[in-house]
Simulated assay, not measured.
Amino acid sequence: MEHTLIQAVIDAEQQLRSAMVCSNIETLHDLLADELIFINHLGHRVSKQEDIALHQSGLLSITSIALSGMQVHAYGDCGLVHVNADITANYQGAESNGCFAFSRVWLKKGQKVQVISAQSTPVVA
């Protein structure tokens, strides 16, 4: 089961990356848990609804995300991800390009996994 959960989380991470770049609201809705709390690179707590609204409104526009150094660990029904992301984006009218370290907690719910907690930290060279 651990290997199956890890593979599901890896697959979901790729789906999330793609959905963020394309602002695919339907996929984001499926991958983000209703109780999501995301602490963004500015230290702000963002809910699922707020995150999706940023994509819908165009206040968040992501051109590219390149993931590296992904580590995934399974703990019961949870998958923990640590990954670096080199992102080219515009956030609330300002360039937000750079490398960010992400931590995400994925929870297995039935046959799918959803992000319930996430945090982004700028990586300073």
Rank of each mutant, 00 (worst) to 15 (best):
80 L>D: 02
92 Q>V: 11
30 D>W: 14
101 A>T: 15
96 S>K: 11
41 H>I: 10
103 S>V: 13
103 S>W: 13
73 H>F: 11
29 H>R: 14
23 S>I: 06
70 M>P: 01
89 A>I: 09
108 K>M: 05
108 K>W: 11
90 N>Q: 08
49 Q>L: 02
103 S>C: 12
32 L>T: 04
73 H>M: 13
103 S>E: 09
55 H>V: 00
79 G>W: 00
43 G>R: 03
33 A>D: 09
98 G>Q: 07
105 V>N: 08
57 S>C: 01
47 S>H: 05
90 N>F: 01
22 C>I: 02
75 Y>L: 05
84 N>D: 10
80 L>Q: 09
76 G>T: 06
54 L>R: 13
54 L>E: 02
37 I>Y: 02
62 I>W: 06
71 Q>P: 08
22 C>V: 00
74 A>P: 03
26 E>Y: 05
94 A>M: 06
108 K>Y: 07
69 G>W: 04
86 D>A: 12
104 R>P: 08
57 S>L: 01
23 S>G: 03
45 R>Y: 01
37 I>F: 02
91 Y>F: 07
102 F>C: 04
100 F>N: 04
78 C>S: 14
32 L>V: 06
63 T>V: 02
84 N>E: 06
66 A>C: 02
84 N>F: 06
77 D>K: 12
47 S>V: 08
105 V>M: 13
72 V>Y: 00
43 G>P: 02
23 S>F: 10
66 A>R: 12
74 A>C: 05
18 S>T: 15
104 R>W: 10
71 Q>S: 06
53 A>W: 08
88 T>H: 15
84 N>W: 09
33 A>V: 10
27 T>E: 11
90 N>C: 04
56 Q>T: 11
106 W>M: 02
61 S>V: 11
18 S>D: 09
56 Q>R: 15
61 S>L: 13
65 I>R: 03
103 S>Q: 13
94 A>D: 04
106 W>Q: 03
89 A>V: 05
95 E>A: 14
43 G>T: 05
49 Q>W: 08
99 C>A: 09
47 S>A: 03
105 V>K: 11
